[in-house]
């Protein structure tokens, strides 16, 4: 499978948010603004690529019965690494994302790709798969975050264009998250069906 196709599949055909419906919890919770969604997506991307590579490297020697604990330990290591790095160098975003950074460990996408792809393919291909799915996740989170930000706070990437007023606050809270996600999913799948 060509490396490029792996990446593009993760973006569109296997988009984790709108097609695979994985990782819904961080999707709904961290997309209150475009920047937050983007950061969460990039954080997950970091973990995805690295854990995919590591797991594909060790998969041949991991005994069958303990493969899940081993994978989780590897994933958790990368997430903790990410956490320490964010705490040290991006403290503001670390505070904003808060609890959801350690929750990347249990994000279905990460373990899912590890099991479904990385454990059965080579290191470079797994990296590409991780990159593709991670990019797909990042894009969908950014788009969702952008929509919620525009409707909910009248801002685009933090810049308020409606004179400092609030937008429709339902969109920066849980109900709006579900509504936006639902409608975006409709649009995405409609576009997918057409092509």
């Amino acid at each position: 499978m060509s490396k490029f196709k792996l990446i593009s599949d993760g973006l569109v055909k296997n988009n984790p948010t709108f097609v695979l419906l994985l990782g819904m919890c961080p999707t709904l919770a961290t997309t209150t603004s475009a920047i937050n969604g983007l950061s969460m997506g990039l954080a997950t991307l970091f973990v995805l690529v690295l854990s995919n590579m590591a797991i594909s490297a060790i998969a041949p020697v991991v005994p069958d019965k303990v493969h899940i604990p081993v994978y989780i330990v590897v994933i958790a290591t990368f997430v903790t690494l990410l956490q320490l790095l964010m705490q040290a160098y991006t403290p503001a975003m670390y505070e904003t994302l808060g609890l959801f950074i350690p929750l990347i460990v249990v994000n279905c996408i990460v373990l899912g790709r590890a099991e479904a792809f990385a454990s059965k393919h080579g290191v470079l291909e797994s990296a590409c798969d991780g990159l593709g799915v991670g990019l797909g996740f990042t894009c969908s989170l950014t788009v969702l975050g952008l929509v919620r930000e525009i409707l909910g706070s009248g801002c685009v990437f933090g810049y308020n264009f409606i004179g400092g007023n609030d937008g429709m606050l339902a969109f920066v809270m849980a109900p709006g998250a579900f509504l936006c996600l639902g409608y975006l999913m409709v649009l995405f799948n409609k576009y997918l069906k057409k092509n």
Binding site: M168, L169, A170, F171, M173, P175
Partner: peptide
């Protein structure tokens, strides 16, 4: 209810 939450 949507209005109540959105435009308190």
């Amino acid at each position: 209810v949507f209005l109540l939450v959105s435009f308190p």
